[in-house]
Nucleic acid binder design. Structure first.
Lengths: 343, 343
DNA sequence: CTGAAAGCGCTTACAG
DNA sequence: CTGAAAGCGCTTACAG
């Protein structure tokens, strides 16, 4: 049988209160008693029971990472990178870490609050939430400390962490324009995704600032799916032969678009320049290598956990709860100057 | 304040014991009381407190996935796939799921048993454990239900799940031989990894069965690192120009080896055939695409969790606690027939 | 510096 | 079918 605080107390000849204090680092304990207790604890292989600790105190705090629609795609390791970042943060903090998956379906059968209560979650980082999810509505009015990744919200209890998708997109499309492209299409993600809205907005701004016309039919949605991107790109390029560059809302989409171009006998980047988003590993291994907007998801996860703990401790500097992480564009082979005869 | 079982009992006008029974699905409860209680619970947004439940019963069981040296590599998504599989299993079971990372360092400061006690873990699936880790020794004699992935052990309390690495390697090397190769090198992983031992053994068996000499200097270790693989392959190929094919213990190694070949002016597969292991996503995106031994890590994770629960319930069919998952070789472009002048 | 006692929110024999 | 009571392993005022 596993040793309890009572066993340790008995063998050490002290009360359980004293043992508890020693294990919680209280300072007002005689050095000798402390040593004796640690000795006995070691001997009995004693370790505090977390459940009891959680139950009897308010102090053991747990932060959760909740991954939405965690039907994990081997090509995109972003959820794992976020997990990595959150985990790293909790390791060097006093918080316990737990991980859960959720889905639209699960959200319908149990509220966010219920879920967190049930699992004794003090606060949660949520990744992959869509604006159509039940949690999204609930969280707008929640009092539970929450941090959302890649989606904005106006609730002082709710923090957000992301790159500046709009600025990054503007920068990427500006780059295409600087290479001489004038007819630039966009293969976007999903209308339900906050990031898609922002990336499209950046795309539009870049065109407008450069006095280029925004052709509504140049923007298509591929739902972040490689195969849909393939089909949609073929459609777009065959009905708009003047397009010489594509800005894609993800690398997965960009890879589908590259396949589509190849399938139509177009060369990348000679006939069509392509920029992706996320800088997943594949971006540097496909041929040609893909120019892409990089976001450091591990840092985002780490910062999200940090922000969450600040919210929990009610310790926010200047009440700023929307944190922006720097992005980076990785220039590779998939973009070229526009050809003279294409102008 | 969060509602407790006491609140529900009071409002519903019953005892807390009755509420508890309703929430635990006991059948000997009046239908009306049951409905009343659910109604009140919903109204109060009541949900049982897991910590209390864990503490007061033996029934709430938790299984943990422990990832060792979880300094996650973006190129290899295998840990995440395992996580996915374990998670899927627990979702459809009565077990709670928790996830932790560990490291050699952490293992030194806290025993496996202590770690599990502290977190109320009933049993654990461990991935990435090396034969040199402290846990490895402890687990040889542990009574705690444990399942190891990709590493064997002789303890009836400890299950293992993996593909048959030896057979898979034999098959892969046989395939190289069938394409006419006679001088086949192996770039292996690490001497501390159980899978490396097995893969090397399969390699040796294939050569021996085909009456080919095993040249000891043909086998090199790259520690599963792409850059080390690059260097080691260059060394190997320059001191043994007769080598026409390489069997690599991982795709990461294979990709390093491909780079090395290219760097030396050798073409893959014309001058050098290469087979990898794991079939990571990159395998189908590199040029040329890589022939590789595929292992379905999600299934391995799922089965590991299943095996663990069988051990916990002491329900093992015929006491078989070493489960083998089928492997598969994906044939792609990186292997060719040996050239006549190379024979 | 140390201990007795109440309490955290549940479950589970047991009695009726 | 329902309830009173003990107990799970801790923490935390409070008293000394």
């Amino acid at each position: 049988m596993r040793a309890t605080i009572r066993d340790v107390a008995k063998v050490a000849g002290v009360s359980i209160a004293t043992v508890s204090k020693v294990f919680n680092g209280y300072s007002d304990i005689n050095q000798e008693t402390k040593e004796k207790i640690f000795e006995v604890a070691k001997e009995l292989d004693y370790t505090p029971n977390m459940a009891a600790r959680t139950l009897s105190s308010k102090s053991q705090q747990t932060i959760a990472l909740i991954l939405n629609e965690f039907n994990f795609n081997r090509k995109s390791t972003m959820p794992l990178e976020v997990l990595n970042g959150v985990y790293k943060f909790t390791e060097q903090s006093d918080f316990e870490f737990v991980f859960y998956g959720t889905s639209t379906e699960k959200q319908e059968s149990k509220t966010f609050r219920q879920f967190c209560n049930e699992h004794n979650i003090t606060g949660a980082v949520i990744q992959g939430l869509k604006m159509t999810d039940p949690y999204y509505y609930e969280i707008q009015e929640t009092s539970l400390p929450t941090v959302l990744i890649d989606i904005v919200m106006d609730n002082p209890q709710v923090g957000t962490v992301s790159i500046d998708s709009e600025a990054a997109s503007l920068e990427a499309v500006n780059y295409l324009i600087s290479r001489g492209h004038q007819n630039i299409g966009m293969i976007n993600g999903s209308r339900d995704a906050n990031v898609s809205t922002l990336r499209e907005s950046g795309y539009r701004q870049a065109l407008e600032k450069n006095d280029l016309l925004v052709n509504e039919s140049y923007v298509q949605y591929a739902n972040f799916d490689e195969d849909i991107a393939f089909l949609i790109t073929k459609n777009l390029l065959s009905s708009h032969k003047e397009i010489t560059a594509l800005f894609c809302a993800s690398d997965i989409i960009a890879i589908g678009a590259m396949r589509a171009a190849r399938d139509m006998g177009k060369k990348v980047p000679e006939d069509l320049s392509i920029i992706g988003f996320d800088d997943i590993v594949l971006a540097s291994y496909v041929t040609p290598t893909l120019t892409s907007v990089a976001q450091d998801m591990e840092t985002i996860g780490f910062e999200a956990a940090k922000l969450l703990t600040e919210i929990i401790k009610d310790n926010l500097e200047e009440k700023i709860n929307h944190w922006i992480i720097p992005h980076d564009i990785h220039y590779r082979e998939s973009v070229a100057d526009v050809k003279k005869d294409q102008k």
